[in-house]
Simulated scan of single mutants.
Amino acid sequence: MQNQLSKKEIKLYKKQINLEKIGLEGQKKIKKSKILVIGAGGLGCPVLIYLVSSGIGCIGIIDGDEVENSNLNRQILYTIKDLAKTKVAAAKTNLNKINKECEIIVHSYKLNKYNQIEVISYYDIVIDATDNFITRYIIDEACYRLNKVYIYGAASKFEGQSGVFHYQDGIRYKNLYELKFKMMENQCNTEGIMGITTGYIGISQAIETLKIILGLSKKSRDYVNIYEMIEMIVKKKEIKTRRNRINNILTNNTEKAKKKSLIFKKTINTKKSLIVDLKDRQEFIDKHVKQAINIPMSKLKLQQTTKLLRKYEKTNNIIIYCKSIHKRQVASILLKQQIIKHKIINSKNENLIE
């Protein structure tokens, strides 16, 4: 792949080249870059469209799914004519119509622990456009081992978040969600999602990618961006790395809270435990017990939730955690109906109740 710009490319990217922070040298850096987009769905489509339009020289797309009717409202790279085609094949065809100069490499399968190193090692930056926790842990581990920048994004309903991991010894995905276990996947199938949400987050990922390529992000990242579409609120959430994280449950500067946290930590560590936090998703993101997983009340009745808890019941104490007494009681009743052994912990942290 040649890194020099042709006269046609200079004309095509004239508006970008005119920007002081890009120029000819910046456009050459964009063309030289090799980007891997993992997932060609709601997040991946806007990422791919804008990166190809920006002049990226080589883009890899990895996805094992086919285009379905329900994809079309938010996966804007596809049309009705693409139904039943593999997403990577349809994406390549449609992206070539936007920019024939971009080399597009398709990987028509899922990323897993067996192929992660081979696939990711070829690219400079990895963009996570997936919808499940397991794949994100695979991406995180591979990027850590290969020293690759990891551009993260996630969306649900009218909310989303994005971040940059493994940048100049910055935070990792596992610093955001540390507990490794199989979570319920593809939440948009059950919760619903708006196309504008995935579009917004996908564009933010494309912006972060170009900033890294152009050297406009020069500081180590220790936060993720949280987006709320209805009120158009954007805020940064600081993420502490494991080496700097205080070993209590919720960050609190008062001595009283520290003592309670130590009592709580001692109590739960007496046996191997799986803590289930009943908060809504955004509340959980804002503040949660370090070891907890998030299963909102609305998801507790789902068959996949029951299956998950029964699996971990065999090796763990299932602990229900929530500030609301009512929610704790309702959750306990639901689990008793499913004959799932569990304990309840109150918000004051002192006692475990059978």
Rank of each mutant, 00 (worst) to 15 (best):
Q75F: 00
K97G: 05
G64C: 03
G60L: 09
C102F: 08
I56Q: 01
G64V: 05
A40E: 03
G39C: 06
L72Y: 05
G42H: 08
L19W: 07
I30V: 14
V47T: 14
G26C: 05
S54T: 11
K8M: 10
I59F: 06
G44W: 08
Q75D: 00
I38W: 02
L36V: 07
L24V: 12
L43P: 03
N69E: 13
K87C: 00
N71V: 03
I35F: 10
V88Q: 03
K29R: 14
K81G: 07
N73R: 06
N73I: 15
S33I: 09
N73Q: 15
I56L: 02
L48K: 01
V47P: 03
D63Y: 01
V88K: 07
Y13G: 04
N73C: 12
I10S: 06
K21R: 13
K14P: 00
V52A: 10
K28E: 14
K34E: 14
E66F: 11
E103S: 12
A40K: 05
N18T: 12
I80D: 12
D82Q: 01
I38P: 04
I105E: 15
R74D: 03
K8W: 11
Y78Q: 00
L12Y: 12
L95Y: 04
G39Y: 05
S53I: 03
G26P: 08
S54E: 04
I10G: 03
A40D: 01
C45E: 06
N71Y: 01
K100R: 10
S53P: 09
A40C: 15
G39E: 08
I98A: 01
I35D: 09
K8P: 02
Q75N: 04
N69R: 11
E25R: 12
T86W: 08
K100P: 12
S70P: 03
I59R: 05
Y50C: 07
N71W: 00
N3W: 01
I76D: 02
L51R: 02
L12E: 13
Q27L: 06
K31E: 05
I105D: 14
N99H: 08
